[in-house]
């Protein structure tokens, strides 16, 4: 079973925001929700690098661990999804997420910040694949159509890659060898751990703290 991952090759990323816009377009994501975003490090100086970041679909996802209502699920290929029916908008997943992935429609908490929204790896939600309900809540489900995330498919420089982690690692390594430099796959250590233990939350995976 493929383990779906993202890899942003920051030597390639030019901060063009295609990935961000593609996501908005594909899922009609409303203003204020940034499922994906670009962060530039060392702005304006030699060594400046940009990284495109969304939910990394962690092994052992911290968001899922802290969710008070336990509304996350991880698919067999490692995609971390959540149920908007169950989410109470508490914001805890955002505190725990190492990458700032969870997004909320409202900034205050009085009552609720609204249902959390985050990158779905273009895999919809817990609803049945490609139903109108699924689209309405989570956007389209490209994975079920045999397509990969649009952000990665449209990345201008092939900096952002999505797919089976082993393959991504292989491509990345090949690039680094070919060009002779590369400063590691941003976020991989944090999201996937050094020993890739597989998906802790996936059916059969090691359970996480909490439940």
């Amino acid at each position: 079973m493929a383990r779906m991952k993202f890899l942003c090759d920051s030597e390639r990323c030019i901060e063009c925001n295609a990935c961000v816009t593609a996501c908005k377009n594909e899922h009609e994501v409303p203003w204020g929700i940034n499922r994906r975003r670009l962060v530039t490090l060392n702005d304006g100086m030699p060594g400046e690098r940009s990284v495109s970041m969304a939910c990394m679909h962690c092994n052992d996802p911290p968001c899922a661990a802290v969710c008070p209502v336990d509304c996350f699920l991880q698919t067999a290929d490692g995609v971390v999804l959540h149920s908007k029916d169950l989410c109470i908008g508490c914001g805890y997943c955002f505190y725990a997420c190492p990458f700032g992935a969870p997004q909320f429609p409202r900034s205050t908490d009085f009552g609720s910040r609204g249902k959390m929204d985050k990158c779905t790896f273009c895999a919809g939600g817990p609803e049945a694949d490609n139903t109108p309900e699924e689209y309405q809540k989570y956007g389209s489900n490209r994975l079920a159509e045999g397509k990969l995330p649009l952000c990665a498919e449209m990345c201008s420089t092939r900096a952002l890659m999505a797919g089976d982690g082993d393959v991504l690692a292989d491509i990345y390594a090949e690039r680094v060898v070919r060009r002779g430099y590369g400063s590691g796959a941003t976020g991989w250590t944090t999201a996937y751990g050094r020993r890739d233990a597989g998906s802790a939350l996936a059916p059969g995976g090691a359970a996480t703290g909490g439940s």
């Binding site: 090949e174 060898v177 590369g182 250590t189 944090t190």
Partner: peptide, 10 residues
Amino acid sequence: KDQVQLYVPE
């Protein structure tokens, strides 16, 4: 390829 560092301290 196997000398390439994927995982770096973060």
